[in-house]
């Protein structure tokens, strides 16, 4: 479904991605883990065309999207719950969801809205509240719900667990699994919280300073000694295994 080949991305002179290869197949949950600054979010943003890849190709459902405008990429069926959630703080929950639905056909709106409210009953309770007055967990729910309103086939999630209490994280991960299993949305997830992300994922990738260093099924990576040392037991990310 999503194919990333040899992608390099620069911020000025800094090479944030140094030749990334990665695949996401339809129906999968794929997690990308790595330390702070490894380039995970950059990869997610590059898939959406902002910033653009300097070299390499990105294709979605067989079509090259490397040089497309961000909003066109989104309209192809890739939705993103971006880093820092980026909900619209002065707009109500329902207005935020409406904005997510701008690119979707209008006749689906009521159904989609009901589905999002079923996934996140909290959003239904708070639908007339302004986005900025929600708690962190509710804001994350809103960001995911808003992304779902565009009826994506691929959902990109950037650190959905950031700054949330463990219980809320579990709740959100349960919903992500539900979205994948019941609504058949493919999910590509970027996380520092390796344990949860790998447990959820069918497959995982490990990124270190702009390169993919390891890949495998979620279970394989979870039990891998180096991954455990670097990401699960509080060690430093020193893993350098050719991937």
């Amino acid at each position: 479904m999503l194919t990333v080949r040899g992608v390099h991305t620069f911020y000025g002179n800094i090479e944030a991605l140094r030749g990334v290869d990665l695949d996401v197949a339809a129906g999968e949950i794929v997690s990308l883990i790595g330390a702070n600054g490894a380039g995970k979010s950059t990869l997610l943003m590059t898939i959406c065309g902002n910033p653009r890849a300097a070299r390499g190709t990105i294709s979605f459902e067989g079509e090259d999207i490397t040089h497309e405008e961000t909003y066109r990429i989104v309209r192809r069926g890739i939705a993103q719950a971006p880093e820092g959630r980026r909900i619209f703080p002065h707009m109500t929950v329902i207005e935020n969801l409406q904005l997510g639905a701008l690119v979707a056909p209008e006749e689906h709106f009521e159904d989609d809205l009901r589905r999002v409210f079923e996934l996140f009953p909290r959003l239904r309770e708070r639908q007339t509240q302004r986005g900025g007055t929600l708690s962190g967990g509710e804001q994350q729910m809103l960001a995911i719900g808003r992304a779902l309103m565009s009826r994506p086939r691929l959902l990109l999630l950037d650190e959905p667990s950031l700054g949330l209490a463990p219980l809320v994280v579990r709740q959100i991960y349960d919903v992500v699994r539900e979205i994948n299993e019941q609504q058949h949305v493919t999910i590509f997830l970027v996380e520092q919280n390796a344990f949860n992300a790998l447990r959820l994922a069918h497959r995982g990738y490990v990124m270190v300073t702009g390169r993919i260093t390891m890949t495998g099924t979620g279970r394989e990576l979870l039990t891998n000694r180096e991954v455990r040392a670097a990401y699960l037991e509080g060690g430093q990310p020193t893993v350098r295994v050719g991937g």
Partner: peptide, 16 residues
């Protein structure tokens, strides 16, 4: 209105 609040978020929602 969305543009006033957050241009980057707008792009990720498919707004031109």
């Amino acid at each position: 209105e969305a543009l006033r609040e957050d241009e980057i978020a707008c792009r990720t929602l498919g707004i031109n």
